[in-house]
């Protein structure tokens, strides 16, 4: 039995493309779309997969990362899915890819204008944990009622002395919509302002949203407690990079640990060019 190019039928892809175009036209706005049941579980990237399927053409070069790495099991699984159903070329090199599907990271290598970054999004609604009702949060977005979001940040500072959100750090897009950048570490937030097209797909929650190239993306903060994208001050133990996001790895029974780049392609290419520590 053979499936259509990139699995989804053309009608469905067209429906998804319309949602993407609407998302691009209203940056940061969550567009409802009729998410299809995919042959992988909800919560495992069905939104990203549908967006990728709608974007891919036979000439594309596709890259998939999960936690920054090409070799994590779910990244492998999704990459295989498109190798099988779309027959597109795949790569692990960020610079060579035209479409990159990601979960939880933005690649360290700066993206350029002819690339599309597709995010897998578990909960697209940044207000969800303040207000569980979809009917209410849609109204809050519509009326731009974001006071409650700042109350949460205020409470963080009052209790912890700083904004205690480390990932999925909310942003405001083009001074209008508050948006969840998906669970990327806040270290990645500055990279959301990019020459590449960024698309966000939430399959289970049936939402697509977008950041067109060079969209203004501001992380929420206070004037006297500005957004701080810093990370732990370690260099990568493998390539020596000081500017990349690191995974902490426990290496022995005594709890010894080392820090290595979470972006495996970035780390490998630095080591290839002899910049290893």
């Amino acid at each position: 039995m053979s499936y259509n190019f990139a699995y989804l039928d053309e009608q469905t892809k067209r429906m998804i493309r319309r949602a993407i175009l609407k998302g691009v036209a209203i940056p940061g706005y969550q567009v409802p779309f009729a998410s299809r049941e995919m042959p992988m579980p909800y919560g495992w990237g069905t939104g990203g997969v549908q967006v990728s399927a709608a974007c891919l053409t036979p000439d594309d070069v596709f890259k998939v990362i999960d936690q920054g790495a090409d070799d994590t099991t779910n990244a492998v699984s999704i990459r295989r899915f498109f190798e099988k159903t779309a027959g597109v070329a795949v790569t692990e090199k960020t610079a060579e890819a035209t479409v990159i599907q990601t979960r939880h990271r933005i690649p360290e290598t700066p993206l350029c204008a002819d690339q599309i970054l597709v995010y897998q999004v578990p909960i697209p609604e940044p207000l969800r944990f303040l207000e569980p009702r979809e009917t209410e949060t849609r109204k809050m977005h519509g009326l731009e009622e974001y006071g409650l979001m700042h109350v949460k940040l205020y409470e963080d500072i009052a209790r912890h002395g700083e904004i205690a959100t480390a990932y999925a750090y909310p942003v405001k897009v083009e001074d209008r919509y508050v948006m969840d950048p998906s669970p990327i570490p806040k270290f990645d937030n500055p990279k959301l302002e990019s020459p590449a097209l960024q698309l966000f797909g939430a399959g289970r929650e049936q939402r697509i949203y977008a950041l067109p190239p060079f969209t203004k993306v501001a992380s929420l903060d206070f004037e006297d407690y500005p957004f701080d994208p810093s990370k732990a001050a370690h260099p990568c133990a493998l390539c020596g990079a000081e500017d990349s996001y690191l995974d902490e790895v426990i290496v022995d029974d005594a709890g010894g640990r080392m820090f290595v780049c979470s972006d495996t392609d970035y780390c490998a290419s630095r080591r290839d060019t002899g910049e290893a520590a």
Binding site: E37, P41, G43, G68, Y167, A168, R204, D247, E248
Partner: peptide, 23 residues
């Protein structure tokens, strides 16, 4: 199908989010 997918997705790696919380 929705519930089980989302519930079980917490088995997927969350190294990055966990790392940022850890820090």
């Amino acid at each position: 199908v929705q519930a089980t997918g989302f519930l079980e997705h917490i088995k997927l790696p969350h190294y990055v989010d966990f790392q940022s919380e850890l820090e």
